[in-house]
Write a protein that binds this DNA or RNA. Structure first.
Lengths: 198, 198
DNA sequence: GAGTCAAGAACGAACGTTCGCTTTACACTG
DNA sequence: CAGTGTAAAGCGAACGTTCGTTCTTGACTC
């Protein structure tokens, strides 16, 4: 199909990326061969290489979509009007984790992306920038919580935001590696730690 | 060297494991070839294969030592007599993270191990059991903190332990992926969140 | 001198990638 | 509208490389 529409090109690209994501979820980045992806996509070698010049480009594209996937979730939490209580905000963030930690959840790929980022400087920079952006959203959440009287007036939003944000991967990691605790229990633990429990 | 002493065998094994750890830190599990490890150890192919029948056995051995490395640290924190304040306990746990997150720190390998565990059921089981054990230590810490009046009497130690434990990988992940925040700042954030700040 | 074990050349499989060919949809000519 | 040219898309055999592993050899210890 020469001289083909832009929609067709985008669809093909998506078709390859979807196939790659399935393969990577199943076998991991390095145990997936290009031939696996090509077979999964139902295309030919040349076709795939037309859209992605190397396996690394394919990995990078998937990695960026995986890491960036939470951006809108956190951004909306930070912009909620009126501001949500801290516990409610955290609950919603963890709900996203729950949703994306299932068998087909893209967060299962996140760990591989972190691993890859340790060896790919360009990817490392992207991950660092993206996660720093996430943390900024949590800093905003902390600032608004302080202004709403939910935190001591002298609390540093930068510091609280980092701690708050840390609770999210802390939950994710436990869930994906040990299978527990459930979200309600984790949240109850956070609540017991947080001052407003008193 | 036939009919060799047990110490010699153990030393050889350690020599290979040390070489493997250096290689894995430098290049990652999958970008390290057996020949890399063999050259780093200064041995021959046959020698290494005598001690580790496959590359996977080598990876598993390294992975177990990396994941298990924190066991004594957390166990001691949980057994401290008299119990340490929560903030002090967390500070020491994070200090361990700091120490092992440097260029030669073994925690740099942890992310790769998590990644590997998603594809190796035996390793996954080991990781799950080890991390569940870590969490148990934090549950003990939470119980003792509650008994000491540092937490509300009705706080559930299981839940609080999970939240407390979650703060550790939450810090680790931010440090290793974004380079910030520093430990003091993270701890200040946690303190501002935690009731005793008031 | 017999047995053991490190050494490293050699092996077969699998990898990512290249390249020349075929197919096909559109643009242009008359 | 029919016929033709063209450029892009798709294809897949084949390449060179690298991998994890095996196997033969020879040196050394007891």
């Amino acid at each position: 199909m020469p001289r083909v529409s832009d929609e067709h090109l985008a669809a093909r690209r998506r078709q390859i990326l979807d196939a790659a994501r399935r393969c990577f979820l199943r076998d991991g980045f390095h145990n997936t061969s290009m031939q696996d992806v090509i077979a999964e996509a139902g295309l030919s070698v040349g076709a795939v290489y037309r859209y992605f010049p190397s396996k690394n480009d394919l990995i990078t594209a998937i990695a960026q979509s995986v890491i960036g996937g939470a951006e809108t979730v956190f951004a909306e939490l930070a912009a909620a009007d009126p501001p949500l209580p801290l516990a409610e905000t955290l609950d919603r963030a963890l709900a996203y984790v729950d949703a994306q930690t299932g068998p087909d959840g893209i967060l299962r790929l996140a760990i591989q992306v972190w691993s890859e980022a340790q060896r790919d400087p360009a990817l490392a920079e992207f991950v660092a920038a993206t996660y720093a952006g996430f943390r900024k959203h949590f800093v905003a959440i902390a600032r608004r919580a302080r202004d709403a009287g939910e935190l001591p007036p002298d609390a540093d939003p930068e510091a609280v935001g980092a701690a708050l944000f840390g609770l999210v991967p802390g939950y994710f990691m436990q869930r994906i590696l040990t299978g527990s605790p459930d979200r309600a229990s984790y949240l109850a633990g956070v609540r017991a730690l947080v001052r407003r429990a008193g």
